[in-house]
Design a protein around this nucleic acid. Structure first.
Lengths: 209, 209, 209, 209
DNA sequence: TATGAATGAGGGTTCATTCAT
DNA sequence: CATGAATGAACCCTCATTCAT
């Protein structure tokens, strides 16, 4: 039985997509060549243009996957009735899970989205939206009396996201693997612990550092 | 009185350097053209090659300035007798001061860390060294009993640096100006407060979030 | 009937090759521009890079053709049972035939031997090998008692090849055509006569010159 | 006592000239940079243009030295009453002496004059003149009954000069030094022997090779 | 669908030459 | 005389994109 054309199209498109994921990660957007991606996908480079408008379009497809998944998570998080701790935990775990399951994707996020000035304008909006949602979570926490109110919600956001991003970055740059769930747990706990309770040794409250 | 040639040479080199700073910031390494930099400097593009070996060399000169200054600060910090709070405060203020005085430089630092012609290794090495020094400060803090020891020193480092970097990034991306010293103070305090004492509302210790 | 793609590819490659042959001959390696070659071939310059890695690669392809053909001849010559006279005659005729059929090629051989991007080593190696083979022929002649033994075989080689090469060079520089087989015969005979029997008027042996 | 300016000018010019000799030999005309020559001469590159019109002019000065010296020798040779053997011997020794005393010069002759297609037009004339003079010597020899007349005088010229040039070329390419006068003598004798008496083993006259 | 030949804009780099000092 | 800063023509090469087959 012959597969439907749509099915075939989808498959080939996926092959190209994943090849692009790999090549963009290895070389970065500018140095990645369509020919590299085609070779990785095992097709001719002309074919790429049947499935994607151009290099930019292919790259955007990857970005969309990233942001859509992230937004979906964020919306779920917002809709849910969970407390602040669980919500922040979910965000961290989302990044760590993606790091495990799709390291190319998060590599690209770190290198090409989070840290890249080229063609930044449109991408910045995505980033801002993500920050705004996170800020909402922080504000909720402040309203609920869980978070201190003497620090602006967006400051709390920067601190939280920045700390997390650096964890991921270090792993990405160091090509570290996440060995097991324990490690994921330790990272998550460390992040939340310090963010929520601080790095200061307990009992030192108010003492001179 | 005639200026020495060395003086003149230095001046022109500086003009090119600053033009490069601006153009690299605006366009990123890949999209920045030597011709752009020359135009910005008000010279012909050929002259750039009298002062710098090539585009890469010019870019590296910029990065070196950044890292050398940063290392100088870190060494001062290490040599000093100050307590943990003052040390971390100095690091943050260094970034904020640089942001005020040389926003292009810090922009490039934020955006172009992973950019390099072929091997980003050398630049990562710079970064790692910076992290190692910071980790030393954290370890000192743990030994001195100022910082909790149930979280690894390098985790503390990631959280601290990541949080700070994101503050800067947000300002960079948003083209925000630091209006006055008060704002610098507020940012510094917020960062240190959360890092050291946590974001959790005091009195909530142990309470359900 | 549709031609195979390989066939087409080969054809176009040949067109470029022959254009290069012509341009390299006219301008020499350094002054020959890829754009010239492309124009000569009636294609865009970018296409040259589909068939050859770069200018150097294209040039090497030409040299390889020359050397491979020459080596093929030399090996045939060595395998054959012919006497010295026939062997030397074959070598001369090979050069003269090539001059007739592919004057560009021999022009390049004559002019560009020492030309190379950085290291002329590889090309000299080719030349040396050619000389070594010829020297073998001379040594055979000495062993067989056909050639005088009071002069080293490689000296005989220099004299023979040098004389021949200059014949060709003069024709190349003077843009002389070989008009007919008689001329070829005369050149060959003159060379062999002088090389083998000397330029001295017979009967003058030992007389004062 | 202060030297006259003309004296100084001459000295500096000579320094540049000799630097050029060295650099042109090492890199060839195209790859030799004025900056290289100036550095070799220990002066600034702008100064080169005070003494020579441009790169081409500097190169021509070298060529002129070569050709003028060679012509001087040839004229002396022609004016003298020496026999053919002595004349040819003088030519060979001139090349070998120059190889000993000014290897850069003869290197350039071999690489840039004898074998070079670029800017060849004007240089070719020099070469032709040299050949014409040599041909005159050969014709004299034929008239005097010293050389066989069944071979055209210019053929004899090609054979003689070609053989000699290849000797020099091999030494140049192989970076061989002339160790002593004996070697010079052996080369000269071998060349003249083969050219005049032939390579064939004596007593084999007419025998099948 | 699929291929890869073909195009040409674009940019880095070199270096001879000029000229103000 | 001497310097070397300054200029810009020249040219190699890359690679995204198009399109005939």
């Amino acid at each position: 039985m012959k597969k439907g054309n749509g099915q075939l199209r989808l498959e080939k498109q996926t092959v190209i997509f994943e090849a692009a994921l790999k090549v963009f990660r290895q070389k970065g957007f500018h140095k990645a060549r369509i020919a590299d991606i085609a070779a990785q996908a095992g097709i001719s480079y002309g074919l790429v243009y049947h499935y994607y408008r151009n290099k930019e379009g292919l790259f955007n497809a990857i970005l969309n996957l990233w942001w859509e998944d992230l937004y979906r998570l964020m919306e779920e998080t917002q809709r849910g009735k969970e407390d602040l701790y669980q919500r922040l935990r979910k965000i961290i775990l989302y990044f760590l899970d993606t790091y495990q399951n799709n390291p190319d994707l998060i590599h690209i996020f770190i290198n090409e989205i989070s840290r890249s000035s080229s063609n930044l304008k449109p991408r910045l909006e995505y980033f801002k939206k993500f920050m705004v949602i996170t800020e909402g979570i922080m504000a909720d926490g402040q309203e609920a009396g869980c978070l201190r109110q003497d620090i602006e919600a967006h400051y709390l956001t920067y601190i939280f996201l920045g700390a997390m991003e650096t964890f991921i970055s270090v792993m990405v740059y160091g090509n570290q693997k996440i060995k097991n769930d324990q490690q994921k747990e330790r990272i998550t706990t460390s992040l939340l612990e310090v963010f929520l309770h601080g790095a200061q040794k307990s009992g030192q409250e108010g003492a001179k550092l």
